[in-house]
Design a protein around this nucleic acid. Structure first.
Lengths: 236, 236
DNA sequence: TAGATTGTTAATCGATTAACAATC
DNA sequence: TAGATTGTTAATCGATTAACAATC
């Protein structure tokens, strides 16, 4: 067990009171209620751990084990899960497969989502090659760059497209998520362009502070901020 | 202003009540009190935004502006800051430089920290080349790989070392942080090795679930979990 | 002065946790 | 049956927010 300081997500916008039905997270009308931001963030992290645990051949897992890898209190985990259904067996634990399926259902992320990756540099290549996205149904459907040396070359399974084909590719390949692995100086322009073409979710790996319309969700990667925070707690 | 869902950190361990002195975050005895996990996480994020704002030539910034980029409520930001000192000017805002210095003081991250990077592949190269760490005093002092083709080659300013030199390099270069950009299958072994050589902070970019002693802080990078969570809130 | 923005209060709500009965 | 672990309760604590006086 490690004193892990773990990143987790939290959107401060869109906070909403929740009255989740106990079984399916749906209300009488069949409309799915919103989870609170904290719950959705934690469920995403449980899913990550469960996916990896399954890869390692683990068929059952206890709240205590999930706790050790996420550093979420075991009671909190049981509480989160039991408020959404009865997924566990007392004295036994949770079936990994079942729990993965249930959390995916709850998060409504069972489907496949098409990503366009911007920037085919080292970071872009690392992102495209990572299994992290693929495990969760995120397909890198398109990769863009402006470097003629990279355009037309394959990265994993995807051929790098010229940035000028942005509009056409986004629409033809049903891109819903833009991942920015471009230099900070170019990030705002790319963000503007993808937003103009209907993309409403941006994952920003650049250091740039992006501006976007209110209906666009921007997620910033902040490795340095995370490390600073981890450091604070390890320097007792 | 965007409906940004932003990552922020939270260590569930080491929670502690806080009674921070208003000016320096120190108590009568000169011993720095612990911030709550939430406050330390938010301060780290403010610092990230301030650093970038400064790069963009912004000399002053308001709580409202910081709020737009971090999606932390502006009142919360003023509250966090004012509980640690009076850093702002009413009617004006906060001086970027001053606030950066103060937050660094509070987080005790003014110093330089030496990082050893494991894995000189695409991800490792991207991490080493990123300005994100350098901006906050994290020096990539050593890079390790086991691929003979990479050993001896420079990555940015650092020559790739053979993994067999681990012990010597960690001790000679005063490495305090290990960053893992190795395949998942190798991650646990590397973690064990760096811990055996005294490193107590690990930043894990691999998908592996790592085990470590309780006094070791493990921070896991979870891009897919973050994206899942962002997705949940954008699929209204 | 007028406008802007901080610092602070007060109230509410959600997160966290220990403890334990239920039950596999 | 004995051990393990979930599901759930109850109590506490911190986070969040609106509102506004202070003041630049």
């Amino acid at each position: 067990m490690s004193t892990a300081i773990s990143a987790y997500l939290r959107g401060y916008a869109e906070r909403r009171a929740v009255a989740v039905d106990t079984r399916f997270g749906r209300d009488q009308l069949g409309v799915t209620d919103r989870l609170t931001v904290g719950v959705a963030a934690r469920l995403s992290r449980y899913l990550q751990v469960l996916t990896q645990a399954k890869k390692m051949g683990k068929e059952r897992i206890s709240s205590q084990e999930i706790s050790e890898y996420t550093n979420v209190n075991a009671t909190q985990i049981r509480r989160d899960l039991s408020s959404l259904g009865k997924f566990g067996k007392r004295g036994v634990g949770y079936a990994t497969d079942l729990l993965i399926a249930e959390i995916r259902k709850i998060l409504r992320t069972q489907g496949q989502y098409n990503i366009a990756l911007f920037g085919a540099g080292r970071l872009g290549q690392a992102v495209a090659s990572s299994g992290a996205f693929a495990d969760h149904g995120f397909n890198v459907e398109a990769v863009f760059d402006i470097d003629p040396a990279k355009i037309g070359r394959p990265i994993r399974q995807t051929v790098v497209s010229d940035y000028s084909e942005l509009e056409q590719v986004i629409r033809n390949r049903a891109i819903t998520i833009g991942v920015l692995a471009v230099p900070a100086a170019a990030a705002q322009q790319v963000a503007d362009d993808v937003v103009a073409n209907g993309v409403r979710i941006i994952f920003n790996y650049s250091e740039a502070l992006l501006n976007a319309p209110p209906d666009v969700t921007i997620h910033n990667s902040n490795p340095a901020a995370e490390l600073l925070h981890a450091l604070y707690f390890s320097l007792a």
